[in-house]
Design a protein around this nucleic acid. Sequence first.
DNA 1: CCCGTTTCGTGCACCGTTCTACGTAAATCA
DNA 2: TGATTTACGTAGAACGGTGCACGAAACGGG
Lengths: 336, 336
Amino acid sequence: MADGDTETRVTIRTVAADAGVSVAAVSKVMRNAYGVSDALRLKVEASIERLGYRPSVAARGMRGRTFTLGVLLVGIDNPFLPGIYQGIESVTESAGYKIMVGVGAARARTEVSLIEQMIDNRMDGLILVASQIAGETLEHFARQIPIVVVGHHEPAAQGYDTINNDDQMGARLAVQALIDRGYQDIAYLTQTDQDDHLADVAPQREIGYRTAILAANLAPRILALPQHGAPRDHQIHQMLTAPDRPRAIFCWSDLDAIPLLSEALRLGLRVPEDLALIGYDNSPMAGLAMINLTSVDQDGPRLGKLAAEAVFTRMNGRRVAEHILIEPTLIPRGSF
Amino acid sequence: MADGDTETRVTIRTVAADAGVSVAAVSKVMRNAYGVSDALRLKVEASIERLGYRPSVAARGMRGRTFTLGVLLVGIDNPFLPGIYQGIESVTESAGYKIMVGVGAARARTEVSLIEQMIDNRMDGLILVASQIAGETLEHFARQIPIVVVGHHEPAAQGYDTINNDDQMGARLAVQALIDRGYQDIAYLTQTDQDDHLADVAPQREIGYRTAILAANLAPRILALPQHGAPRDHQIHQMLTAPDRPRAIFCWSDLDAIPLLSEALRLGLRVPEDLALIGYDNSPMAGLAMINLTSVDQDGPRLGKLAAEAVFTRMNGRRVAEHILIEPTLIPRGSF
DNA sequence: CCCGTTTCGTGCACCGTTCTACGTAAATCA
DNA sequence: TGATTTACGTAGAACGGTGCACGAAACGGG
């Protein structure tokens, strides 16, 4: 135990003593609650300033609000998260709310434990980004804390809100663009599911893909990749060297499209002459000259902003669920 | 699970009542403190299991430990963070500690407020990654909470620890590799400073660059880029189209090397025939076939692991500062 | 001038833990 | 057997806030 720090913390009592008022009065000023005269407020604020007082979030959490939002991200390496985060931040900052981030490793168990941690830390609300947690588990947690989910489709959920881009539409945009350019042999590359519910974005995009392909009287064709590790690289290699390699691939995410592109170039394939490629998320990398990947943009900042706004209205008493779908756009580049 | 939906939270009292013991007894079991018989422990653990009890971190924080570590990251978009984070996580997980992440926008003011937030939330310790906060400010906070800093050189600091790769050495490795291949006109690309102290990694790498250049009787040449925005792209363009464009550039980070590479290719420059490039951080992207960027690797996971270990020993009473420097390695690829 | 309203400030009972100090029963020793 | 140690369990005071219930002024209308 590290002690020996004589720097004792400034508490609400210190402030009260310094200002010559009661503890309750200081608390009122902090929360700008009703029944505080200007004179009192001034006195207290002066003391707060002088002593550099900051309320303990932990103590606050025991009775009132913590003024902190929990944000759960799938990981830190995902290029579409920064946009969403920034969108959330833009809202919370002006509302005087703080953010605590939890990083789930895209494993449902880790994510559940992170949600519990957020609840235990008395966050006022929660935003889950691309969580893989099942709908009913979420309903369970939603009874304990306001929850908004981004990147997970659960349009019938009662207890929490969902904010998404229209993944089916995004997929149709991509596939249609390929069809318009004359491609016929178009495959969809998805991720091999761990817990995969229909609610995840990849299956949703698959639906959009199928719709567009079938509407054009073409044959759907589904490929899949595991998330990490050596088998993944191996499968990419095999996919590209197979005799029946598709002429065009729509990838569920840039996360897979870019390694695919990399391996294609390594194999001497020309893109798009030998292989056309479209990704999803329009990550910053996609725009680089040497990548130049056509991708579907889902406007992360807007998603984040909407999510933060939703969690605030829910915290303020809204009980009926909100399910928002925004329109994605195709960003055409040289890969098709 | 026979767990019905209880509206009220399961507290330590609920468990105590259910197990027919005192509150203190339950607390002892939770913290596996001294003086608990097997019979008692079993009874309590059964109740905990049955009721699904989880202690409130907020309440815990009021007296004892929260078993939570705060990790402050510069941003989420930085490709060298995932490695460090993973290293930290590997240690905390086995120690039964949780992590809360704060995302500073590389602005010192935001970062200070995040540190305060972590203290207010009663984290048991803090790891700052690539923070831009001045040394004396850190000393101030270090008196309130154990702090370990990664990616910031402050070898004389008393109150907190620093864990770094040897940035000067990394730079020398890169520059020497360029010299060995016969390049003479080698520039260093750094970031335009906002608050820049010598403690930041970019100035450290500049020292290494200068050392190696001067040792080879060459002339140092320093270029700089702002962090974001349109002026940045413009400056990259100008840098590459200038008549006196250097023959080789050592970039302080892949973060700048990759956009530079992108623009170079867009301008029709051949790499490395017209322009040689070496970056820093060996981010995952650097290994892609179409980027293929030589880069200095600083072994993020190891840095993270060391940082977590340091914060634990400090939490357990160590008072004397530790300053660790690990050796970086050059990962040669096609860009030079 | 009296009495009902406001307005403002305070005392105090929480919130859910931890942890010290203490009581009691069982075990060990002389 | 009585004295002393050891092991186990409990009561209750913190911790740093919030917010309800209450009382004392100040106000204002009849």
